[in-house]
Design a protein around this nucleic acid. Sequence first.
DNA 1: GGTACATTTGAGCACATGTTCAAATGATGG
DNA 2: CCATCATTTGAACATGTGCTCAAATGTACC
Lengths: 119, 119
Amino acid sequence: MVAPSDVCSEKLFRPEEVERAREMVEQTPVDPLAELFKVLGDRTRTGILTAISSGELCVCDLAELFSVTPGAISHQLRLLKAHRLVKARREGKMVFYSLDDDHVAGLMSMGSDHVKEGR
Amino acid sequence: MVAPSDVCSEKLFRPEEVERAREMVEQTPVDPLAELFKVLGDRTRTGILTAISSGELCVCDLAELFSVTPGAISHQLRLLKAHRLVKARREGKMVFYSLDDDHVAGLMSMGSDHVKEGR
DNA sequence: GGTACATTTGAGCACATGTTCAAATGATGG
DNA sequence: CCATCATTTGAACATGTGCTCAAATGTACC
């Protein structure tokens, strides 16, 4: 809990720019956006999205692929699904997951461009 | 440490699809990608990027804007800078930060579309 | 040099997060 | 109904993470 209304000395504080920025922040879904990126910000989840980008896979395929337990995969898939990044299709005992949204591939692709650009 | 080479029963294991997925994963910078998204996945950092998207701001402006200490902002800016998301410009005692890369705005925008699409 | 102020850095701490294991649920086929 | 297998769910735990505070660094101006 802080109320830093005097972080800078008053002379150097520029209210106009800060106010403009504040409006920018207010009309942007900052929290949901951070939530979304947080979901994407895990190697297992990024790996899952990459893996199923070329076709659906079931939970145990993914567990095998990333050397973790089915439980771990299931936990992550639940998160991904809650954020509408993947969708499930049941076939008998198995459940197949695939990408849910075109934005996902776009985000991954744009992110890849950024990290590759840094050499 | 797990070696789950037998997560599924052998009959239901489909080597071709998994192998295809594995190649997909291998030729994708999964870890750096996850790192990038992890950096974006925090409300303060997403807020900073949004705030400076309309023009540079100094550390104490940002601290004021988000009601945290300059120290906290500085820590986050260091992270953002390490991932080439922001760049710094010194002017006297103050340091102004602005977006470093066009990809950043693109990612934010695409992410916004996704979260807004969910109603 | 010395003071003032903005920023950075480091230590410490409260809290979130990803994993595993084990138990529960769902579905198929005797 | 019972057995089997895939998945899901819950509890527990080790590890990360983001914040604050305090000290250090950098810059300007006297």
